[in-house]
Nucleic acid binder design. Structure first.
Length: 225
DNA sequence: GCGAGATTTGCGTCACCGCG
DNA sequence: CGCGGTGACGCAAATCTCGC
């Protein structure tokens, strides 16, 4: 799993991807930043709008995820009737998920807005022509960024192989920081069950620390026993 | 009540097209 | 001539349901 420093280096490397005037890499830096710092799904980040963000000059910001853009979003809108049948499952339509975002991501987003602004409909991330960024586009940019930021051994490894891995890395980082699982699950937008099943390893190493905290919470001290 | 299997949704990749 | 965007397909992840 990528560590915070590697994540930063990857984000920095994006700056140099396609780094001519088209600036395809820089357009995506904040996008990938969202995947890591806010553990957003790519589809969620693509649908992000300026109005959904609270970006203070300093300190923590906040993102209210109102809608997602499932991969391009256009392929299914025409024939997409199939989605409506059979009860809309995990997708609570009107649900808004609030995700606090750390200062580094606030900076990324502000810089992004300074340079690129938003699309016509207020989306933060768009292609040169104002369309939703295609999955293949950021996937390609990501590959190049990996080659720039990682040593050859890591490039050939599975380390942060897919953009989606950034999300996992972000979630793991939260857990390792001691954030309670229910809170992490809420921010990441999936159930606690899945969270614990998938990230169980990340939590194992926390046992001693958790025990200590419980003891503190009980108002006792280990040395007394 | 818990665990395993099945289904649906969504991401990543491949190949082609258009623009500069 | 090369780079980036678009569209379609295959595979993996997440959830729900069934069986024990």
């Amino acid at each position: 799993m990528v560590n915070p420093q590697q994540a930063r280096e990857l984000l920095t490397a994006l700056t140099y991807v396609g780094g001519y005037e088209r600036a395809s890499g820089r357009r995506l830096r904040a996008f990938f930043g969202c995947l890591y710092y806010a553990a957003m799904r790519p589809g969620e980040a693509l649908g992000l709008r300026r109005a959904d963000c609270t970006l203070p000059a300093q300190g923590w910001g906040r993102i209210e995820l109102a809608e997602t853009r499932p991969t391009a979003g256009k392929a299914w809108t025409d024939s997409g009737e199939a989605h409506d049948r059979r009860g809309l499952k995990q997708r609570a339509q009107g649900e808004v998920r609030t995700v606090p975002i750390p200062p580094p991501l606030v900076r990324l987003l502000l810089d992004h807005l300074d340079e690129f602004g938003t699309a016509e409909d207020g989306r933060l991330f768009s292609s040169e022509r104002g369309n939703v960024i295609a999955a293949s586009s950021y996937s390609r940019a990501w590959k190049q960024a990996r080659e720039l930021a990682l040593v050859p051994d890591q490039v050939s490894s599975v380390l942060a192989f897919r953009p989606y891995d950034l999300r996992h890395a972000g979630v793991s980082q939260w857990l390792n920081s001691g954030v309670p699982a229910p809170e992490v699950a809420a921010r990441a937008g999936h159930s606690v069950d899945v969270l614990l099943k998938i990230y169980a390893k990340c939590i194992d190493g926390q046992e001693q620390e958790m025990n200590d905290r419980i003891m503190q919470g009980l108002g006792e001290d280990d040395t007394e026993n």
